[in-house]
Every structure is written in C-alpha cells, then in structure tokens.
Design a protein around this nucleic acid. Structure first.
Lengths: 135, 135
DNA sequence: TTATAAAGGAAAAAAATTATCCTTAACGAA
DNA sequence: TTCGTTAAGGATAATTTTTTTCCTTTATAA
C-alpha cells in the first residue's frame, strides 16, 4: 500500500483523511465510478458529502493524481494516474481491465500525419471478455 | 446529401421529419453535442422537445445509425456511424477531427493478448491542433 | 383510407454535477 | 506546541443533464 499522504503533498494537495480514504479505495479497485466510490467511502466516513467527493475528484484530476476514463454506454470511471495505458471494457460484465501498450509508434504516426501536439492517448477496446464468452 | 428517409428505414426506424432534420445537421457538423444539436434543430422545429432529441439519439445509437464519442474534459459528442476511425481532440479550440487509421493490426494484437471478442475500438488523441499551436 | 404502433411534445421526475456558505482541519511559521 | 491562515469538509440548495410519463399526433403497412 502506497503512502498517500506524501503523494497528495507532492501534488500540492492537502493530505486529508478523506482523500487518503478515497485513494486507498481506488488503489484496491483499480477503476471506479463516483457512485461506487461514494458508497464505499461512506463506510469509512459516514458523514462525507457527495459534494466533497466531487470536489476532491476534480482537484486530484487537475493536479494529475487521477485520470478519467470515459467509455461508451458506461459511467465515467476514475483511476490513479500511472503510465498511459489502454483499457479493455467488457460489455457484458461491465468490467474495465488495464492493458499495457506501447504508444510510441502510434503517437509518432499521429504527430506526423496531423501535426498535433499530443498530450494523451485514449484507447479503449469494447467487447466481451473471455469469462463472459463462456456464459 | 444523403437520403435519410431510406437510411432510417433500413435501420428499422420510422422516417420522421425531426429525425431527418437531426441527421442532416449531423452530416453538416460531423461531430456534435446534444446541447449544440438542440439549439440547431430548434431553428427547423421550434417546438421540438429536448426529450424527443434524447429519445431519438438513443434510438439511433441502439440501431447503429449513430456513434457516441466520449472524450475527457468534454461533453459527449455524436456522429453518423461509418467505418471505425480515430479522433483528434484539440484541448484549446475543443474541436474534434476524424482520423482514418488501420485498426486491424492493433486489434489482432489485443485479441491475441487478451482473448477479448472485440466489438469496437475507441481511439482518441488529445492535444493541441496545428492552428492552436500558433496562437 | 384506415388501424395501429411508434414517435412527438409538455411537463414532471430523477440523476448527476456544481455552487454557496459556514464550520472544521491541515500545516507552516512562530 | 500553539496559533493563524487558508484550504477542505459538510449540509443544503441550485444547476445541469437525462429519463419517464402521459396524452396527442404522425408514419406506415394493410
């Protein structure tokens, strides 16, 4: 388990108990929606306000401690920021899975073709995972 | 300009004037948010209800006449379905641009690595477009 | 034509997100 | 440690976005 107090401070954010709680749930879960996060964090902080949760998510997104994942037909999910990677989304069980991919080649191609100054590559594959194919 | 009456019927949807209006705006615009689409379609159908717009977007998404594009820090956009392609999103002018990419190699790799039964590849690059780099 | 099933529109309801305002807590400086 | 400042928390209301309901109107096939 990571030391979220320090990570928060390194990102110029006060290390509040609520934020540490949010981050440790996120570490456990990998990817999570606001809705699920709220019901989980309320177990540790019964009085936490949904507004607080939203404010924290925005603050942590802005300071690049979190990343937002948007997938078709699914609620926005969040994850702790790390190396840029792809996601696999199962349309059946609605689970998100990380997938490490080498973006360099792809990004260079885009840069060459479009002249875009690339900031982030967002790659999500939707389909049916192995487990759900059997069912 | 395409014949939207027929396209709608081919997708098992009634060809209403409102739907044809929506589709012709979408053809013009390429990518559009509900908000922008609503203000445009109201010029042609002043009494159209926002609920009608949402209901139509859902119906057309479900019947695969439209596609949804979700990008970080941006509202959901819609486009008329066509060959699977990538998108470039400029964080400055907030414009979306199509980018034709060959997904076969990428998709085969994913299939091999994950066993996923792929349905759709969603690829969006965020950054600054050439025009906005100069500013 | 005409029957019927689907779509439109108005309004309300629900869900998601953001703002306001006062209280509380984090944290650097003394 | 204590204290002062500033940011964060929490309750609530307000917005914004999306969905539902219910009745009227329209598209389409017989």
């Amino acid at each position: 388990m990571m030391n979220y107090e320090n990570i928060l401070r390194e990102h110029n954010l006060k290390a509040t108990n609520q934020r540490v709680g949010i981050l440790s749930i996120m570490e456990q879960k990998g990817h999570i929606s606001i809705e699920d996060l709220y019901s989980k964090i309320k177990l540790d902080f019964p009085s936490i306000s949904l507004a607080t949760l939203y404010k924290n998510m925005h603050a942590m997104l802005k300071n690049e401690l979190l990343t937002e994942i948007k997938v078709e037909n699914s609620k926005t999910h969040f994850e702790i920021a790390s190396n840029n990677h792809a996601h696999l989304y199962c349309e059946k069980c609605r689970e998100l899975v990380d997938l490490d991919i080498e973006f360099k080649k792809l990004n260079n191609e885009i840069l060459k073709d479009s002249g875009f100054l690339l900031n982030k590559t967002n790659l999500t594959f939707s389909g049916i995972c192995i487990a759900c194919q059997g069912v």
